[in-house]
């Protein structure tokens, strides 16, 4: 059994945050070490414009405090699927935001919908934070007590190119 724990995070939650506010990201805890992954536009001053290469950036959120988080224990198959998804060439766009991407990763690897759909189908960190909090109320998780595998949806590979 894998020792990997997947986390999904947002630093804003609900309607008190603005439509365009905040950021959402994912994390993996493996062998006691946590690595964070986020989808960032090339135009952001905190990133390096890497052209057509993937907009999945590693480590940018390592000092960020999430407002809402949810955690999942991964099986071997899910861990393998997660690793493949992190190697994909994914582009940030207004219709494939940090929230859309983080939500899709959890859906693809775990099969749980941490919904981030906001007005007009745009996906936002505030909606992801709110959904995460709602799921946590019904079925709490933590890094020490992640949600256990109930089914294995990690059967297909997500490929979203730039």
């Amino acid at each position: 059994m894998s020792d990997m724990i997947l986390g999904i995070h947002s630093n804003v939650s609900g309607d008190e945050a603005g439509f365009t506010s905040g950021h959402a990201w994912i994390s993996i805890r493996r062998g006691g070490k946590t690595t964070v992954y986020g989808l960032w536009p090339d135009a952001h001053p905190k990133t390096l414009d890497n052209g057509d290469k993937s907009d999945i950036r590693v480590g940018m959120e390592s000092r960020s405090r999430p407002k809402a988080s949810r955690y999942y224990k991964l099986s071997d198959a899910q861990s393998k699927h997660f690793n493949a998804l992190m190697r994909a060439n994914v582009g940030w766009t207004y219709t494939n935001t940090c929230s859309a991407w983080a939500s899709d990763i959890v859906e693809s690897v775990i099969g749980e919908d941490v919904d981030s759909d906001d007005y007009f189908g745009f996906e936002t960190p505030r909606e992801l934070g709110k959904s995460s909090e709602e799921l946590e109320k019904k079925d709490p998780t933590s890094i020490l007590s992640p949600k256990k595998l109930t089914k294995n949806p990690a059967s297909s590979t997500q490929t979203s190119g730039k």
Partner: peptide
């Protein structure tokens, strides 16, 4: 100082 990380904003 530090500010909240945001995909669409930054602090100059």
């Amino acid at each position: 100082y530090s500010t909240i990380l945001e995909t669409l904003y930054y602090c100059p």
